[in-house]
Structure formats: C-alpha cells, structure tokens
Simulated scan of single mutants.
Amino acid sequence: MNEDNESACWNSSLIEIDSFSNLEDIDLTADGSLFLRVLICVVYSAVCAAGLIGNLLVLFFIRVKQDRTKSRLNFFVLNLAVTDLQFVLTLPFWAVDTALDFSWPFGNAMCKIVLSVTVMNMYASVFFLTAMSVSRYWSVASALRNRTVHKSCSTKWICAIIWTLATLATAPTPIFSTVSNVTGEKLCLLRFPGGQYWLAIYHMQKILVGFVMPMSIVSISYLMLFRVIRNRSMKTSNPKRRSQVTKSITIVVLSFFLCWMPNHAITLWSVLVKLNAAHWDKAYYVVHTYVFPLTVCLAHANSCLNPVIYCLMRQEFRNKLKALVHRG
C-alpha cells in the first residue's frame, strides 16, 4: 500500500501515515496508545471548556458592555475572541475522532468544514496576535509623541485584511481534504496530487506563515515597546510601570513561543524526512506518534490562554469580572 501522498489530519496539524518495511520492528503497545488517546480527549475537553468560558466572557465584556467603540486594542481582542471561540468549537469533533482511534465518523463534508475552520482560525488567531503587538507598540509610541491614532476605519480594514489572509492561507485545505479508507479505517486526510513534496510545502507554509514570521514581528514589536517604556520610565522615574510592562511582554511572548514552538519543531522534522534531508527511524516514529499529539494539545491551549493574557491581566477587565461574580 502506497501512502506517501496521504496524511491524516489532526486539528491544525498533520499526523503522517507512512508505510515502512521495518514498521513491524517497532514495539507498539495498545495500552500506551489508549492512554494517549484518553489523555488527548481529556485535554481537548478541558481546553474547549476553558476556551468557551474565557472567550465568551471577553465577548460579553467588550460587545455587550459596549466597551469596543473607542479602543483599537479592544477591537482586535474582540476579533481574537471570535477566532478562538470558533477554534475551540472544533475540538469536540477532534476529541471524538481521537476517541475512535482517529476514525472519522462525520462524513466528507464535515471533514472539509471542520478541518478548514480549524486551520483558518489557527492562522487568524496568530495574525491577530501579531496585529495586536504592532498596534500596542504604535499606540504607546504615538501617545508619547502626542500624535493622533486613527482607530475605527483603519482597524476594521486591518481586521478584514487579516481574515482575508487567513482564508487565502487556508485555501488548499478545503480543496485537498477528504475522507479516505486507510487500512479499513475512514480518516480525514489531506491528499495532494503531487505527493509528499506538496505536503512538505504545505507544512513549510504553516511553519513560516503561522509561526516564524509572526513570532519575529511580535518579538520586534515588544522589544521596541519595551525600549520606549524603559526610556519613558527613566525620564519619569516610574520603575513600577516599567516592571509591569516587562512582565506583561514576557508572558505574551513566552506563551506564544512555548505553545507553538514544539509543534512546529516536530513538523519541521517531518518536512525534512519527506524531502529525504533527514532519516526516518525509530526515534522519529516514537516522537511523531506519542510526543507530537501532545504538542498539538499544547498549541490548542493557546486559544484559552489568549483571553487570560489579553483581558484578565488588564485591570479594567478584572474589575468587571469581580463585579459580575459579586452580582451573581
């Protein structure tokens, strides 16, 4: 059976199904596989619940409480919450898929829809995080220079561009995703006519567009913001403010990096294997089978961390949450 042009889709990432002559030499345990699948289902359920609660609270505070009209950052947060909310709503489908040992029970149309929504919102979430980092620096720098920042119209256009870019980046997914029968199981797959090389390009796009470029922009933006705040704090003798900003920046950058880096690192390894730049061996199989799924869970956890980082760390949102709890 030749499966070089197939890969089973697991959320925003891909789990390979490769046929190798020495596969039978690898010691696979059913108990280990069952434990991993149960663990993933539990994590998906927890991330889904936390993401629903966190992002719905964000939408409630910004949309219902009418706090979005004058703030560029809040408008980005609103879109980010919508993005992450759509993202976590796909997790129950992947949890069922995992519980059934990656046998897709929802049909071909739902495979295309769920996978496309998952991938699109992965890109959109990362793009909005990047736009927020740039906006945060620009707002602070402009305020310190006594410049007026034009908010409403430009922000809406930026959000429209982000959704368009995320849709374009996701375009190959609905086109090439399908449900195929592999070793008697129905799997939600990406099947490219060009085989593993096109799949490698698909992976490289995800790594570069979904991580390397955004991470670079986020890091540069926050380094510049930190420099502006540091210089301002030195002039105004406000070390407390500088400490707060430093802490906030560190948490934002580290959470983004730590949640996504392991997943993209293993994905890069798989790209090198597909291009015959690295050898397939037992270590690769074990990491891709047992470690890679956990990195997918970690990446998805970023969707419930976003509202915590961008909202609950802000004093205004903490005050509103306290008022809501006390009222209840």
Rank of each mutant, 00 (worst) to 15 (best):
L275I: 00
T250E: 02
V271M: 11
W269V: 07
I220K: 13
T246G: 07
L254G: 06
P214C: 09
M224K: 14
V212W: 10
R232Y: 04
P214W: 04
L272T: 00
R227N: 04
S243T: 05
L223C: 13
A277E: 01
M215F: 03
T267G: 13
L254T: 06
V228I: 09
M213A: 12
F226I: 06
R232M: 03
T246C: 07
D281S: 10
S255C: 12
K235Q: 12
S233T: 04
S219C: 07
F257G: 15
S248C: 03
N276S: 10
M261V: 03
Y222I: 02
T250V: 12
T267P: 09
K240T: 01
S255R: 14
P239R: 09
I266Y: 11
I266E: 15
F226P: 05
S248G: 06
A277S: 07
A265M: 14
V228Q: 12
R227I: 00
L223G: 13
R242C: 08
F257N: 13
R227A: 01
S219Q: 05
N231Y: 01
C259F: 10
P262R: 11
R227V: 00
K235N: 15
F211D: 14
R232P: 01
W269E: 14
S216Y: 01
S248N: 07
F257H: 08
V253P: 07
S255V: 05
S243F: 01
L275T: 02
I249T: 14
S221H: 08
W269H: 13
M224R: 06
L268F: 13
P262H: 14
V218H: 13
L254Y: 02
I249E: 11
K240S: 04
L225R: 14
H279V: 03
V218K: 11
Q244E: 00
N238I: 01
M213I: 09
F257T: 15
Y222G: 06
V271E: 02
S255Q: 05
V252F: 14
M261P: 02
S243D: 04
L223N: 11
L272I: 01
V271P: 07
S216H: 05
R241K: 08
F211M: 10
K282G: 03
L223P: 14
T267Y: 12
K235T: 02
N231P: 15
H264E: 15
M234Y: 08
P239V: 03
A283K: 12
P239D: 03
R230I: 00
S216C: 09
R241F: 02
L223R: 11
V271I: 07
W280E: 13
W280H: 09
V228G: 15
S255K: 08
N231W: 00
